[in-house]
Design a protein around this nucleic acid. Sequence first.
DNA 1: CCCCATGTTGTAGG
DNA 2: TCCTACAACATGGG
Length: 259
Amino acid sequence: MPELPDVEKYKKYLDQNVLHKKITKVQTDDSRIIKAPKNSLKSLEGHEFKGSKRIGKYLFLETDNKKTIVMHFGMTGDIKYYDHGEQTPKNSRIIFAFNDHHDLAFVNPRKLGKLDITNSIEEYREKKELGEDALTLSEKDFINILDNKTGGIKAFLMDQKNLSGLGNVYTDEILFQARIHPSTKVNNISGKQKKDLYYKMMDVLQTAIKHDADPAKFPDHYLTAHRKNKDKCPDCEGEVEKVTVAGRSTYFCPSCQQE
DNA sequence: CCCCATGTTGTAGG
DNA sequence: TCCTACAACATGGG
């Protein structure tokens, strides 16, 4: 489930488990998602991870060797830290072994993710034209970026160049909380609505993080657990509807979110 | 067999 | 230049 709150969960997991431990071995498979040159990964052996950073859906692991590992999960993925004696998780694409007899696996079944290496997080971010992280974006900047656009609001929120971290599921949740129809053109959204949208976005992200990005733990008035066509709207007597917006399956309540 | 899935990227067209 | 639509990538589940 790798949107911003999910990746934030992974970041905390890494911070708790793998920092400041000597890397004894790096093993990768030959899948196309390993973008980093093999020798650059091998050269991390004997070094350690000293810090992590998340920007949007990207997770960075800084080493004490001037290099930074870049993780992106695509549509599926997980990271697992486990005792070296345990079985390697299925679909592990890279495994770091540590001197505490534990391993870290980057798991990516569908191979839509990637694992890269960079000399500079800032450089990598510029190359990707990655917008500011949704959680640290100010209201003023959010409104400024939004004011210069003309397309649909869902496409806007999901475009990682505008702001980074929102994907299909959380965009739907935010638009539901803001009571904005997902097909709405951004120039049809009032200043008051834009401000409200910003605060709803922050609230949804913080709430999701607080609940470990687990939709089952989200508040009752959240839509995410109801991502099924014809499911009952958590706020009114209406039914959730499924449509395609910005090329993605979109769930919303036609009665709460009128155009 | 079919369709669907939390993402990104490249291409083509308006 | 900006926006939209769509295919491709790869795998598993219903």
